[in-house]
Design a protein around this nucleic acid. Sequence first.
DNA 1: TATTGTTATACTCTATAACTATA
DNA 2: TATAGTTATAGAGTATAACAATA
Lengths: 161, 161
Amino acid sequence: MRANPEKPDTTKHDTTPEVSHVSDETLRGFIGYNMKRAFNFIQADLAQVLKPHDLRMVTFSTLVLIVDNPGMRQSQLADALAIERPNLVVILDELERRDLISRDRVPTDRRAHALKATFKGRRLFEKALRDVKDHEDRVMAKMGLDDRARVIAAMRLIEAE
Amino acid sequence: MRANPEKPDTTKHDTTPEVSHVSDETLRGFIGYNMKRAFNFIQADLAQVLKPHDLRMVTFSTLVLIVDNPGMRQSQLADALAIERPNLVVILDELERRDLISRDRVPTDRRAHALKATFKGRRLFEKALRDVKDHEDRVMAKMGLDDRARVIAAMRLIEAE
DNA sequence: TATTGTTATACTCTATAACTATA
DNA sequence: TATAGTTATAGAGTATAACAATA
């Protein structure tokens, strides 16, 4: 497991050898480490893709869920996004200010807001979605179609404990 | 792509229907979304595993790299961890205060620090490593051995653009 | 009494500029 | 002049408590 089994293990403050190449072989065996690195890469690339649309990962996901689930409440959306309700409020404030979504009172429960995408919001959704699909094809370009499906299936197995 | 193709698409503020189940089918098609969810699960489980050792993900990774690369400089370690040098300083401060690592001046370049794990650091490394291996077996319990290797290989393909 | 959305706040992570001591 | 480590700081992202309106 150690990097240099041939080095003397004196544990004394003798001459400290310079390290020419840093080995991460122990960490490389872990799926968590490899997933973090791969996800960091995807996240950075996706951020660049969404920037021209003035969207971040979380605002894009929010817009997608609202388009796909018109009339949804904020508490339902927060659950789906796995974020806390207070943090969703500022996200929706921004999307509403940009006229991408609307917050309408639910007649049957005046505490709740029914979320809907505006026409402008659906237009932005469609444009951004095309770019995100291109981004996905790009980051998975080196993998075969069967491997892509296998990887996604594996991810879902992991989270479904 | 829409959740309810049978709903009337009036786009008017008519009676807002309650949403019974939130659909994320659009996002489910993306590897980035699935990877984020899977990684969140792994991260939460790993945090619980490391907590009894008073370690976080980043302090564990730091300790592993120092054990595997004795004599390494802080700048090399920051590169390997993909974090900025200033953020590494406080991490090393903590590990040094707990007597898990040492920072020794490099005789040939008195600007640099040679990093080494102490005996106590190596002991903690070995104990934590066993728990992390158990954690990995647990989160990948539902996958076959061939799928585990395939997923890790796919991760490395993604980040190696 | 419980829930929805909200405000305020705090804590972690991460990123950048500027300093010191060495090269 | 450039580099290694450091300090201070600011910005994201995330989490919790408490409030008003409503159920």
